[in-house]
Amino acid sequence: MSRLQTRFAELKEQNRAALVTFVTAGDPDYDASLAILKGLPKAGADVIELGMPFTDPMADGPSIQLGNIRALANKQDLAATLRMVRAFRDDDTATPLVLMGYFNPIHKYGVPRFIEDAKAAGVDGLIIVDLPPEHNADLCDPAQAAGIDFIRLTTPTTDDKRLPTVLNGSSGFVYYVSVAGVTGAGAATLEHVEQAVSRLRRHTDLPVCIGFGIRTPEHAANVARLADGVVVGSALVDQIAKTQERADAIDGVLSLCSQLAEGVRSARR
């Protein structure tokens, strides 16, 4: 079993949802970012999404745009991100880690070389925002052939007719983008989330994780009652933006992560 399968199976046993956290690699700099990454599992993150910085994050709101800018200003390239994953894997072989971002840096790095290096570094999955199933041949197919999961975004606009196309190439889990919009924008109602989860469950047996607009432990708990996982990104990244001090940035992210984890863990008690 892959790390993602193992993790979601364990959580099903425990009857609770996964806390999936997003931070950008190299934000605010390499060392602080690695400290955050290494601290996340202890702070209660069950699955980690690590953003690969890009100059033009077209589907991201202001929080994650700024995170990308901070990371790029400190020269965080794709090679550094893969190095960071290797360093994380030195002392954590259980927590699934998924790289998230846009295709161009991978295209430039070279797809075969990227897959080989990502696999060797201990990457479990990929979420590539601008690679819909229409472009499976570009990265999804070779990544899955190498045993790296390709996690698909589904959205309120992905109708029943299109859903099978999107889900056919998916593995690991399904990420439901609960609002049509950029990251960090407004949140969906719980009614919408409930309906969306039941619609997705009719089409797939993969775990369903809900993201976009989830910022507080209470909100995370509410969503955790309905879905297999809760994704939080912008709220964590904002903790880094709030402070000039690296130590405060690390503390800020990890303490919010702990609170969110408590929310998720309390949800079905």
Partner: peptide, 20 residues
């Protein structure tokens, strides 16, 4: 049919926009 001119073009956008 895929919107390609040789290897150029295509539809590299977020899923939210694909149906539209």
């Amino acid at each position: 049919a895929k919107g390609l001119f040789g290897s150029f073009g295509g539809q590299y956008v977020a899923e939210t926009l694909m149906p539209l």
